[in-house]
Structures are given as structure tokens and as C-alpha cells.
Simulated scan of single mutants.
Amino acid sequence: MNRNILASAAALALGLALAGPAMAAEPVSLKGDVQVEKTVTENGATKTVLAPPTTVVPGDRLLFTTRYSNDGDKPVDNFVVTNPLPAPVRLAADEGGYDVSVDGGKSFGKLATLTVADTAGARRAAQPEDVTHIRWTLAHLAPHAAGALEYHAVVR
């Protein structure tokens, strides 16, 4: 099944999400990227490589990356980067290092501490497939500092 539109939409959604108010309020620039993780075998050795998402199918593993840079001459403290997960993907696993939301970005916490309502209305522990947003808080960005934030997702 060809999912070129899905890949483009996922990359676009990430890019649009990153172009929000954070860029206007701070001298921090953000750039999003998404790649497909492919397992290949060469000369009997198996390895994982990253490729552009020209075609994705359910079950494909994706790597979302947000590169950041403090383009200003002053430090920036407590800079928050929030990425909505595109609807056609689910979080691959809780890799830590970030907070997540399971309610559309209204509240955030560690996945292990969050709950969601099941189909009967009872509360259950939140799972990676319940995550709607990921959020990182960068405590201190020195002038001209740069880095990258990553998370893995799986095409639904």
C-alpha cells in the first residue's frame, strides 16, 4: 500500500506544529524531519538505516527529529518544544526524556503516571498508542547552542 500522502502529511504536520508561537517569542529556531527506519542486510550483516519516507505502510517505524538552535546572543531558559503526533502514527515506546499528553495536549506527564478512559468508561493505564503530544523542556540554551530531540513512532 502506497502511503506517499501519509509521509508528506506527517512531515508537514510536524513542520507546521514547530512553526508556532515558540519561534516568534524566542530567538530559537526549530526544524522538523521524519525518516523511515529500514532494516537491511549487507554481506550477511543486518543493520538499521534511515531513509526518506517516500512510501510507508502500517507497521513501519519512523524517526521524528526536531532540531533546535538558539540564534540569539542571550541564553534562553525553560524553552518548551511541543510536538503533536500525527494521527496516522502511534508512539513506538516510552523512551523517557520527555513528557507526553493523552488528552490532546491539555495536560502532560510521564506516560507511566497517566490514565485514560476505556470503552466502558473505567480508567486504565495510558499506553504508547494513547499519546497525542510529546513535550520537552530545555532548561538552558546558551547563545548559539544547538541540538536535536527525537522520538520513534509506528505507522498505524
Rank of each mutant, 00 (worst) to 15 (best):
L85F: 01
E42N: 11
N78G: 00
P52L: 15
L62E: 05
D103N: 11
N83I: 02
R61E: 14
P86I: 06
K74I: 06
N70T: 04
G109L: 03
P84R: 08
R67W: 14
P84Y: 07
K106Q: 15
P58N: 11
V56F: 12
T66E: 13
N43V: 08
Y98R: 04
R90V: 07
K106L: 09
K47V: 05
A45L: 10
G104R: 07
V100G: 06
Y98Q: 03
D60L: 12
N70W: 07
R90M: 09
F108K: 05
A93R: 07
E42W: 14
G97C: 02
Y68I: 02
V81G: 02
P58H: 03
L85A: 02
P53V: 13
V80F: 03
P86Y: 02
T65E: 10
P86E: 01
L50W: 04
F64D: 04
D73L: 15
L85S: 11
K47Y: 10
S69F: 10
P84A: 06
P75D: 15
A92K: 11
L62G: 09
A93E: 09
T54C: 12
D99N: 07
G59I: 03
D73H: 15
Y98V: 01
V57H: 08
F79Y: 14
R90F: 10
V89I: 12
